[in-house]
Amino acid sequence: MAKFETVVVGSGAADLHSSIQVALANIPVSAVNIESSYLGRPNLSRARLKPFTNLLNEISLYRGKDGSRIDLVIFPEVSVPHAWESMLVAWARRHRIGVVCGLEHQVNARGQALNEVLAALPYQTESGHWACIPIRRVKRFYSPAEEFTLLNEGLKIPIKKDPYHLIRWRGASFTIYNCFELASIEDRSLFMGKVDFIIACEFNRDVNYFSSVIEAAARDLHCYVVQVNDSCYGDSKVVSPSKSEMMTPLRIKGGDNLTFLTMSLNLSALRTHQRKGYGLQKESKEFKPTPPGFPIAEVHVRIELGK
């Protein structure tokens, strides 16, 4: 089976081709809620839903100094109950804001605990109406700690591995990794040259190890990386393939209230830099040169999406 599939959403418009405004949700992920989900008793209380919907409302109302709106909001791994999926998809369509989040474990009829990531991506149809397509994928590599807990709860780990998705959304190209998947060098290398940015949804306490992985991914793949972790563990950030002093332009940790930070990713500047030879790249103050063997042909594929 192929390790990734290409998913095209909103090919009729390339309004996100030049830049995309991302929001990193700073929310806690409760171990109690995780346990309740795989035991079949997800926490769907009003006390949990109310602050979550308040956060969504703040995101939908946000306007930058230049009047810009948020295009895509990212939540941590296992942070959203499955029962809220339809609500999120409807919200994404209504407000025209994409959502990427980790869904809590759901146990199927075979006793397998599914850890899935959801992408709800709105787009305008040929008739002018707005629609939203939900894309789900089961995690390919469960962490050793996650496997230990689930197996000792009498549950099973899925054997079948879903392919990753190379998502072409309204002119922007990205992929999503679900936490421990990023530890695979082979799986990270699949998307060299193919993506403008990668998203990492995490529930991970080993922030130092993953910080090194994230920085390596940004340099090796030469793309932006948007990492969103549980607010208690922290280190949610945006990493750019730039010099060390400019590599992390946004970082957030902690806080009692649910909140978010935003940043605009300059996709056209990244592609323009990548298509040049080393002689011109080395003079750049914005990005480091691309690594050896970087596939320029893939850059031109991404450039063509905006035409």
Score class of each variant (00 low, 15 high):
residue 292 P to M: 03
residue 303 I to S: 03
residue 158 P to Q: 10
residue 178 N to E: 13
residue 300 H to D: 09
residue 164 Y to L: 09
residue 74 I to D: 10
residue 267 L to H: 08
residue 47 A to C: 01
residue 191 F to R: 04
residue 162 D to P: 11
residue 168 R to I: 04
residue 149 T to L: 11
residue 48 R to N: 13
residue 195 V to E: 08
residue 62 Y to N: 06
residue 92 A to M: 05
residue 184 S to Q: 06
residue 193 G to D: 09
residue 297 A to W: 05
residue 170 R to A: 06
residue 40 G to W: 08
residue 301 V to G: 10
residue 290 T to E: 02
residue 202 E to L: 02
residue 120 A to Q: 06
residue 85 E to M: 15
residue 239 V to I: 15
residue 148 F to R: 15
residue 188 R to M: 11
residue 190 L to E: 14
residue 261 L to F: 03
residue 166 L to N: 05
residue 20 I to W: 09
residue 182 L to M: 15
residue 73 V to I: 03
residue 130 W to S: 02
residue 68 S to F: 04
residue 37 S to D: 09
residue 114 L to K: 10
residue 269 A to V: 03
residue 146 E to N: 09
residue 213 V to D: 06
residue 185 I to K: 13
residue 145 A to Q: 13
residue 190 L to P: 11
residue 141 F to L: 15
residue 161 K to I: 05
residue 202 E to Y: 01
residue 260 F to D: 04
residue 15 D to L: 07
residue 294 F to V: 06
residue 172 A to T: 14
residue 48 R to Y: 11
residue 36 S to Y: 12
residue 306 G to C: 06
residue 194 K to Y: 10
residue 23 A to L: 08
residue 302 R to P: 04
residue 62 Y to M: 08
residue 12 G to K: 11
residue 291 P to Q: 05
residue 43 N to C: 10
residue 241 P to K: 06
residue 195 V to N: 06
residue 278 Y to G: 00
residue 300 H to Y: 13
residue 88 L to W: 02
residue 133 I to P: 00
residue 286 E to W: 04
residue 197 F to W: 07
residue 110 R to W: 08
residue 72 L to E: 06
residue 198 I to T: 13
residue 60 S to I: 10
residue 185 I to H: 09
residue 187 D to G: 05
residue 67 G to P: 01
residue 185 I to E: 14
residue 244 S to H: 05
residue 252 I to V: 15
residue 57 N to P: 00
residue 131 A to W: 07
residue 152 N to Q: 13
residue 188 R to L: 10
residue 220 D to F: 02
residue 84 W to I: 03
residue 289 P to G: 07
residue 129 H to D: 14
residue 186 E to Q: 13
residue 132 C to L: 05
residue 80 V to G: 01
residue 19 S to Y: 02
residue 271 R to S: 06
residue 122 P to F: 04
residue 20 I to G: 07
residue 53 T to L: 13
residue 185 I to G: 02
residue 40 G to Q: 07
residue 4 F to D: 09
residue 301 V to P: 00
residue 256 D to R: 12
residue 54 N to Q: 14
residue 173 S to D: 08
residue 128 G to L: 11
residue 241 P to Y: 03
residue 71 D to E: 07
residue 154 G to C: 12
residue 223 C to W: 05
residue 76 P to E: 11
residue 19 S to P: 00
residue 244 S to G: 00
residue 211 S to D: 10
residue 158 P to K: 07
residue 192 M to Y: 00
residue 273 H to T: 03
residue 35 E to D: 11
residue 8 V to D: 15
residue 199 I to H: 10
residue 8 V to P: 05
residue 57 N to I: 03
residue 20 I to V: 15
residue 167 I to S: 07
residue 128 G to R: 08
residue 71 D to A: 00
residue 280 L to D: 15
residue 267 L to C: 09
residue 162 D to G: 07
residue 289 P to K: 07
residue 142 Y to Q: 08
residue 207 V to K: 01
residue 224 Y to P: 03
residue 92 A to G: 10
